Simulated assay, not measured.
Amino acid sequence: MSAIYTVKEIYIYPIKSLAGISCQNAFAEEMGFENDRRWMLIDADNLFITQREHRILSQFYPQISDGKISITFQDLKHEFSTDEHIDNPIKVAVWDDQSEVVEVNQSTSKWFSERLGFECKLVKIIKSGDRKHESSRLKETFNVSLADGYPYLMIGTKSLDFLNEKLNEKITILRFRPNIVISSQNAHEEDDFDTFKIGEVDFKNIKPCGRCIMVNNDPENGKLKKEPLKTLSTYRVVNNSVLFGTNIVSLNNGIISVGDEVVF
């Protein structure tokens, strides 16, 4: 493939299922971009919390600056340091993966509990290896963050364009919570990528990403819609899974930036 692909957008999602942050560049690590899904909310039973059950999470907006994460929700704001945590390991499961996390601090957990109306804790994964995810396709185990499965999700622009041609109400790429958006020539061609390089980083494609009801949650207002799953299910179902975007892993650490070419 010739170098006709470039990075158009980069996103990180510091806290699982909350809104994301658009970045001009990001540092890629084995677990995902630095500060990407290193935190998540768990309930009183230590079960992880997502927009699937609590769509209001899309209305919590994080920002990172000077070693601190600030969360804005409506007219309220809360802040905590990226490196703070309580030294008391908590065992949780993220789908089928057992993970070790720690609570950030009690005041942050209390702030989220009051906003959401039920008891919860904000927890953090500390280091690589605290959660391992096995690829049934590759028979290989990866050290991952608190993302649903793999460290990175990549989507080509033509995949969204092709979908929007079929929708009455157009949607943005934010519905799909990608990490890397690339300019592409054909819809869903990213599914067939193998290994490639962006900036300083070598990536490997693992598999197309199966999508859930979360993509029907409008991030603008937290309201559940019928689309895009309804339309995607008419042309993107493989083995009972609706596919959109592809899961990739990094083979080394380094920086990628908006404007970087995708080199094969």
Rank of each mutant, 00 (worst) to 15 (best):
S128D: 13
W111G: 05
E140Y: 11
S99V: 10
M40K: 04
D75G: 05
S99F: 03
F33L: 09
T108C: 11
V94Y: 03
R37Y: 13
L47G: 04
T82I: 15
D83W: 00
K110G: 04
I56Y: 01
I90S: 11
L76A: 13
K68I: 07
V102K: 11
G117T: 08
M40N: 02
S81C: 11
D43C: 05
L47P: 00
V102E: 04
D96P: 01
M40D: 01
H133I: 05
K139I: 11
N105L: 06
H85M: 10
G67L: 07
F80C: 03
Q59F: 06
R55S: 13
L122E: 04
E100L: 13
D96A: 09
R55W: 01
V104M: 09
D96W: 04
D66E: 15
L41V: 09
P62T: 05
D96L: 10
N88V: 07
K127H: 14
G32D: 05
Q51L: 08
E84V: 10
D43I: 03
V104W: 00
T108A: 10
D96R: 12
L41P: 01
R115E: 11
T108H: 03
L138K: 12
K121Q: 15
L116M: 14
Q63H: 08
C120M: 05
E100Y: 09
F142E: 06
E84W: 02
L122K: 06
P62N: 06
P62R: 07
F48K: 02
F142S: 06
N46W: 06
E100N: 11
S70H: 07
K91P: 02
T82D: 07
H78F: 14
Q74A: 08
V101A: 03
S99P: 06
V94H: 01
P89R: 07
C120G: 02
L57Q: 02
A44W: 02
S135M: 13
L76Q: 14
K110N: 14
S70V: 08
K139Q: 15
G129C: 05
R131C: 07
D96V: 09
H133R: 14
N88F: 11
E34F: 11
S58Q: 07
S70T: 15
Q106V: 13
E140L: 12
V92C: 09
L57V: 06
S136A: 13
R137P: 01
G129T: 07
D43R: 04
D36A: 05
N105G: 10
L47W: 07
Q98R: 08
A44K: 14
I49D: 00
L116D: 05
S128Q: 13
W95F: 15
K127A: 12
E100V: 14
D87G: 04
T72N: 10
S109W: 10
D66F: 09
K77L: 11
K110M: 12
L57S: 03
I42Q: 00
A93S: 14
I126P: 01
E79Q: 12
T141K: 11
F142A: 06
I86Y: 05
G117H: 10
G117I: 09
V123C: 04
V104S: 03
G117N: 08
N143E: 12
C120V: 06
Q51A: 11
C120D: 00
D45C: 12
I49R: 02
N143W: 02
C120Q: 04
K91M: 12
L138P: 07
D45A: 12
L138W: 10
V104N: 08
N88L: 13
D66Q: 13
K110P: 01
E119S: 14
G129Y: 07
S65G: 08
P62F: 10
